[in-house]
Every structure is written in C-alpha cells, then in structure tokens.
Design a protein around this nucleic acid. Structure first.
Length: 479
RNA sequence: CGGGGUGUGGCUCAGUUUGGCUAGAGCACCUGGUUUGGGACCAGGGGGUCGCAGGUUCGAAUCCUGUCACCCCGACCA
C-alpha cells in the first residue's frame, strides 16, 4: 500500500501542477534526458522511436505528393542570411554563430541554421533557368538551432529535429495550392495517426512567419487548455525570389520570379502527443504511433511453461504485424504494469498459469484500463481490434475535449470573462487591426491562434473597437 | 531579458542558520536465497575530491568572493 502511494507521488498529478506533470512524464517515460547544454535535450530510445515513426508516416505522405528529400548544410554565411530583410530581423535574436574555425577567427561568421529558407533560395537560384525546371518540391529532415531563453523538452528546445519542406512554383496559384495541401497533410496525419484533432487556419499578420506573405497553421488544444501550434505552412509569394534572384524564363521567353512555399513539423509534436493523451499514470501513446504497441507480461514466470507460452504469444502477435515486446525481467508484475503504463504502451497482455490452463490471456487497455479475457486462438485478431478501437476512442476523446473547451464570445466583456476563467479556445470576431489584437493580449493575456478556414459569423462588428468584423478568430493561451 | 530556485554516490534529498569526530538516509545497483494476478522480502556488498576556482581558518559541504550550469515562472519565439 505504502509502495503504491510512492508510485503515485513519483508523477505529479496534472491538476496539481501541469508543467511539473509534463516534466515528470517525459523523464519517467524515458523519452528524454537533459544534457550539459541548456535547451539541448538527449532524446532517448523510446523518445526517438516515436520520432522515427512520425518520420516514417509523414515521409510516405510527403512522397505521395511528389516531394523529394535533400540535405542542406548546417551553416549559413551571414551574408546569405542577410538577404531577406524581414526574415533576418525575425530570426536574428535567436541565432547561434560560429566565429572560429580551428584556431582561426573566421572572416565571415556562420550562422547555425535556425531554418533553411536562405540556403534553399540560394540553391534554387542556381538550378532554375526555365519553366521546364519547375516546380521543385524539396524537403529535408534535419535539426535546427534557435537560441531560446527558456526551454522545455520537446516544447521548446534550443536544438530540435524537424522536417522543412521548400518548394518553388511558376505561379502563385500553384504555390498557394501547395501551401494548403501540405497543411492538410499535417492535419490528416495528426488526426489519423496521432489522434490529435487540429484547427486549420491562417495566422494573423502579427503571428506570421518572418518573411512570409501568409502563414497557415494547425492548432491543437492541450489537456490544460493551452494551444500548441503543431505544424505550419507558409506562402512566400515572390518575396524571397526577388531577394535571392530566383528567376526563370517562361514559355514566352520572359523572365519571371518563382513563387515559394515552406512548411515544417518538429519534435514539438511529441509534446502535443504527451499533453493531449497523457494522464496521471504517465504517457498514453496512440497505437498507430507507439513504437511498442503491446507488452506481454508473464505472471509467475518462474512456473513451468509460463515464459515459453509468453514467447509463443509474442511470436504470434509479431507475425500478425503487431509491434510487441515481452517484459521477462525479474520484477514483480505490479512493477511491470506500472512501467508499461508510465511508458504509455497501448496494451498489455497478461499471461499466467491460470490463463494457460484455460488457453487464454488478459488484454488491458492503457487508456481505459479495461480488461478483456481473450482465447489464445484468436489473440492476434482481438489485439488488432482493440488497438484500432483504442485509436478511435482516443481521437474521439480528444475531439470532445476541444469541443468542451471552445467558447464563443459576442461581446468583449464576455471574452475577457472567459479568458480569465476558462482555459481553452475562444472564438470571437475581429476587425483585422493590429491595435485590437494587441489590446486583447494586454487585457486578456491571450493571443490569436488562427483565423480558421471554417468561418462563422458570431457578430457583425469587432467587439473590441466596434468596427466591422472581418474574420472570426480563435484566441487562446499558447505554448 | 526580468523574477524565483537548485547544485552533496545513479536518483530524491538531509546536513549549511550556529565551521569541529570516519559526510548520512531512502530508492537504485551487485551477490546469494525466498518470492510473483497492481511497484515483494531477507542477508551481505560496492559506490562521494559535497558544481568549479580562489580566499578566511588549527580545521570548510557549512563562512566570504568570483564563476559555471541546470530547473521553474513571466516577457519573446516552432
């Protein structure tokens, strides 16, 4: 009893201190560890395996739309970074510089990429001559570095892993279509694989990417009611093309500038998985992304035949395409249960002498702890079935959470009241002026998350200033 | 960049206020044995230049100066 109490204490409860709960979970589930350099996290095997699955899923979806992978250098000459004014201004405060090469001081300092628009642009300007060379639809998987003031594992690290797609097109229409297409790829991926529902929309000018003409975003709602920007897709128009001189000859032999996009999704999404699905016992991974979907836990494993049966069971599940492991360590069953729960492994299959006698096993779901006794003859089918049900249930629960925590405000008073008392999204109309956006942040402490594609007219005027409303906006506190 | 906090075996910490015997505890780890359906137990064992650098002192984990790092909360950003 006393021991169980200690276990509960080892992960701070969400309601007590959500930030501490998050930190406890990432450490206890062994996803990351801290390194000697602030903001640079060590991604441990269980954390990295999640990222590998994200890569595998996304990369396949990218390639289905014609994306080709490349790799760009990690270092950017300062002169190159300087070429696009808004871009450099946006990133300058958080760039790390290399000033020394061996024993020599460099003539020109080199920036460690915070993002690679400039490198791609420089490269595109070299390889594009004709309309026949277009489009170029490139992506790279890499790490980038941003010198963040405050850091948290996955959510905001100084170095983080991501993919950045960079594309150039002959026309604005084609580029815009690509921008939206990739946003949809992200949104579908989040819902189908990560069981995270997202709001798709456009960022306000204030929140858009440095140098972009338009920034699109998917916004997810965490368990504590704060929003997390989970993926972005930018349309650059021909701004970068002009700064970097990326031109092509069209069919009429006239010089034209290309239209450009970029889009990215980072290890930050792992933070979203944790904060959308986790509970007080630890991590809960959606089955489709879980590196290990099933943990077989033998009971009384020293008894004759138990370990053999467990191994047999593992083999059967593996043959059915399920990602399965067996915990045959010397720990007690209770320990193994807690461990499996902390690590968020979707299902465990308990098998002991009593089960073997009756040719059965017990399947326990991580999210609901629901137990199902299953005959060993149909264990593979049942396991698959429960994994699928669990995946669907997790998405449904997350959707319900978003709905329950999304509010509408028709007046500014109402808005401020909700912002002060209820965590979550608030929908309110907006005139489009920066002043109102700033005032809202000042008064209510929330920022615009996005102008959703799915618009709804709540009121005719902006509740802040009374001018005609242009857009319905999602507001909220963000990570 | 502001505010707060912490650096002592692998981890969590006690000891620091008021300097003083050989620097402790729990967990983890190793060996042997008994156990196993919600974090088992017994016995034995290994592991520390107390973040780092100076200083004060007969004597420093403890006092002084400097320095480094990390964590949390804000402001800014994926």
């Amino acid at each position: 009893m006393a021991k169980e109490k200690k276990l509960v204490e080892s992960i701070t409860s969400m309601s007590e201190d959500f930030a501490q709960w998050y930190t406890d979970v990432v450490l206890r589930a062994e996803l990351v560890d801290y390194s000697g350099v602030k903001g640079c996290m060590i991604i441990r095997p269980d954390g990295y395996a999640i990222w590998e699955n994200i890569q595998k899923e996304l990369d396949a979806r990218f390639k289905a739309t014609g994306v080709e992978n490349v790799y760009m250098p990690m270092l950017i000459p300062e002169s190159l970074l300087q070429k696009e004014k808004d871009h450099v201004e946006g990133f300058a405060p958080e760039v790390a510089w290399v000033t020394q090469g061996g024993l020599e001081t460099l003539q020109e300092r080199l920036c460690i990429r915070p993002t690679s628009e400039t490198l791609f642009c420089d490269f595109f300007s070299k390889i594009v001559q004709s309309y026949r060379d277009l489009p170029k639809v490139y992506n790279q998987w890499c790490s980038v570095m941003r010198w963040e003031k405050t850091t948290r594992p996955f959510l905001r690290s100084a170095e983080f892993l991501w993919q950045e797609g960079h594309t150039i097109h002959a026309t604005a229409e084609e580029a815009i279509a690509r921008t939206k297409q990739m946003l949809n790829v992200y949104a579908d991926f989040c819902e189908e694989v990560l069981a995270i529902p997202v709001i798709k929309g456009q960022k306000t000018d204030k929140e858009k990417f440095a140098g972009a003409e338009a920034t699109y975003t998917i916004e997810a709602l965490m368990h504590d009611g704060k929003a997390l920007q989970s993926g972005t897709s930018h349309y650059f128009g021909d701004g970068f093309a002009k700064a970097f001189d990326i031109q092509y000859s069209d069919k009429d032999n006239k010089l034209q500038y290309v239209h450009e996009t970029s889009w990215g999704l980072s290890t930050r999404i792992i933070g979203a998985i944790i904060m959308v699905h986790g509970d007080d016992s630890g991590l809960v991974l959606p089955p489709r992304i879980a590196p290990t979907q099933v943990m077989v836990i033998p009971i009384q494993q020293r008894k004759e035949g138990v370990l053999e049966k467990a191994a047999e069971l593992e083999a059967v599940l593996k043959a059915a395409g399920i990602r399965v492991k067996t915990d045959d360590t010397d720990k007690s069953p209770g320990w193994k249960f807690s461990e499996q729960e902390m690590r968020g492994i979707p299902l465990r299959v308990e098998i002991g002498p009593k089960d073997i006698e009756q040719n059965q096993a017990v399947i326990v779901r991580r999210d609901t702890r629901e137990k199902t006794v299953v005959s060993l003859d149909e264990i593979a089918e049942k396991t698959k079935e429960i994994l699928e049900t669990m995946q669907a249930d997790m998405l449904a629960r997350a959707k319900a959470h978003v709905e329950e925590n999304t509010y509408e405000a028709a007046t500014y008073e109402e808005f401020k009241d909700i912002a002060a008392n209820k965590p979550g999204f608030i929908k309110m109309m907006w005139c489009g002026d920066l002043e109102c956006e700033l005032k809202i942040k000042e008064d209510a402490g929330v920022t615009s998350r996005c102008m959703p594609f799915e618009q709804k007219i709540i009121s005719d005027v902006c509740p802040v200033c009374g001018k005609p409303a242009k857009k319905m906006v999602y507001w909220g506190k963000a990570y």
